[in-house]
Design a protein around this nucleic acid. Structure first.
Length: 207
DNA sequence: TGCCAGGCCCTCTTTAGGGCCTT
């Protein structure tokens, strides 16, 4: 398998786009991978202490009634901090999920030492021919079977796992890399798209 | 009152603007 490290792939559903504007997490889903195999999962709704808009209810299928019955963000995020420990983390458009993870953990004075890598940035480099790089499009593009239940945290995490493994598989097949370390995938995120082919060739030669 | 994200990436670029992604 192409992934050497244990990682946690995660996805937040939220009240909006920006924790700096007061938006909160309403659901977290995550999948733990060891050498490319799913070994654990985490899913929980959380009550942000206020109503979500009709747009968010419609977009996620998560209703205010469901959230009213859920544990608080503080309780859920405390359990989630235990779940992720210090594993490295992957998300689709990771900067978004990282902002919410940081904001919610900061509220309960918890932290983590894992680092993020982004499946969106990786897919833009590895799957340059895809029509676009939305999670759902990449699922179709890479022929991953899907029930289409996007915009729930665990489902999107599971789909992100499958896209992530397709990215690793493509790198492995095209460049002869195996047991790809997380650090290389972080560098991949920052390597200019224009030169990604040459860069990956060099990684394959020096591996 | 009125406003409301941020980072990446391309290009008709760098003294900037706009589309893509995430909810």
């Amino acid at each position: 398998m192409a992934q050497a490290d244990t990682i946690v792939v995660l996805d937040f559903e939220t009240t909006g786009l920006s924790p700096d504007n007061g938006d909160r997490a309403i659901e977290i889903g995550a999948v733990k991978l060891e050498r490319g195999e799913v070994v654990d999962r985490f899913q929980a709704l959380m009550n942000p202490g206020r109503s979500v808009t009709a747009f968010i209810e419609d977009y996620t299928g998560i209703s205010n009634t469901m959230l009213a019955e859920a544990d608080s963000c503080a309780e859920v995020m405390d359990r989630f901090a235990d779940f992720i420990q210090d594993y490295n983390l992957v998300a689709h458009n990771a900067s978004f999920d990282q902002r919410f993870l940081d904001a919610e953990l900061s509220r309960i004075s918890r932290s983590y030492n894992g680092q993020f890598s982004c499946s969106l940035l990786a897919a833009r480099r590895v799957f340059q021919q895809a029509p676009n790089h939305k999670l759902g499009t990449l699922v179709n593009y890479t022929n991953i079977p899907s029930s289409g239940d996007f915009h729930r945290a665990l489902y999107d995490s599971e789909m992100t796992v499958k896209v992530w493994l397709k990215i690793l598989e493509a790198i492995e097949q095209q460049y002869g890399l195996s047991d790809i370390p997380f650090s290389l995938l972080q560098k991949l995120n920052k390597t200019p798209k224009k030169s990604i082919h040459q860069w990956l060739l060099r990684q394959g030669e020096s591996a």
